[in-house]
């Protein structure tokens, strides 16, 4: 019964997110304000459904559902959605929703394409640190994903301004300044969460395996990612790095995040390689 509800929920998450993306795309072309408001409501609906889905999986599995590939990616999509929705209450960046809704849809499609089986949790990992470490890390990824989308938008807009070919995107994308602020805000938030994620992870590792750090590939790559972002934030604070460089770094950093999430699991293995 519960598992039926569960798969029904995931189906509706996919459907609702798809509708939101389509509406946002249509809005991107015709720029009708009514459509944007509708799309946003539907994305909010998708966010709520995603939350329900994750909760339902929690009850079935009996632990925080972040131990399989499917669960990790779904959690990722959830964090992007809610990072965006929470962000939106503070600033408004023109047409940001179109990019975010597409990213969320892509993540959900990836989640849909892998096995949705439940994995029992090794006794060593059954700890309160699991939800704490995992959810902080995934929220960090959510904000870093926003910075990634902002970076792409920045590069497009900057290209149009530099090449003086003011075309389709020029009027539809926000100002460079707004995108740079978005980059700054999301990276700072994401970086703080990422740091917390690594710290909680190492505390948990001490508890579970007896050592704070053991150079497991996932740990190594998290650290590389962390240094990439740390370098960028340092440069912004000291030398005033901004604009194109900051945008490129946000994209590079996010690629490292993606590699940490998938590349490591499939290519390098290690204790974090869940759900293979």
């Amino acid at each position: 019964m519960l598992s039926e509800i569960n798969s029904l929920l995931f189906g509706s998450v996919l459907l609702v997110s798809f509708v939101a993306s389509v509406l946002y795309l249509v809005f991107f072309f015709n720029q009708k304000e009514k459509l944007r408001r509708l799309a946003r409501k539907i994305l909010l609906g998708s966010g709520i459904l995603q939350s329900l889905y994750i909760i339902s999986r929690y009850f079935i599995a009996g632990h925080t559902p972040i131990t399989s590939q499917h669960e990790a990616v779904t959690f990722f999509a959830w964090s992007v959605t809610w990072a965006y929705l929470s962000f939106h209450w503070r600033y408004s960046v023109k047409n940001f929703g179109t990019f975010i809704s597409l990213l969320v849809l892509i993540l959900l499609l990836i989640a849909a394409s892998v096995s949705r089986a439940f994995h029992p949790l090794a006794p060593a990992l059954q700890s309160l640190w699991l939800p704490v470490h995992a959810s902080i890390s995934v929220m960090a990824y959510g904000f870093l994903a926003l910075a990634f989308c902002g970076g792409i938008m920045y590069l497009i807009q900057e290209w149009e301004l530099k090449s003086k070919r003011l075309g389709f995107f020029f009027s539809r994308l926000p100002s460079l300044d707004a995108l740079d602020q978005l980059n700054n805000h999301c990276l700072t938030t994401g970086f703080v969460l990422l740091t917390l994620g690594i710290i909680t992870g190492s505390v948990w590792a001490r508890q579970a395996w007896g050592a704070y750090w053991q150079w497991d590939p996932k740990e190594t790559w998290s650290l590389i990612t962390w240094f990439l972002y740390a370098a960028q934030i340092h440069q912004r604070l000291t030398a005033g790095w901004r604009g194109k460089r900051a945008a490129v770094m946000a994209i590079v950093g996010f690629c490292a995040v993606l590699f940490t999430l998938w590349g490591v699991t499939f290519l390098l293995g290690g204790v974090h390689s869940y759900g293979r």
């Binding site: 301004l161 460079l176 300044d177």
Partner: peptide, 20 residues
């Protein structure tokens, strides 16, 4: 009404896209 059709307006429009 969304596009600038004089040089001054065009300059303002560009400045807005750079500086917000």
């Amino acid at each position: 009404g969304s596009s600038a059709v004089s040089i001054s307006y065009a300059a303002i429009e560009l400045a807005r896209k750079i500086f917000g």
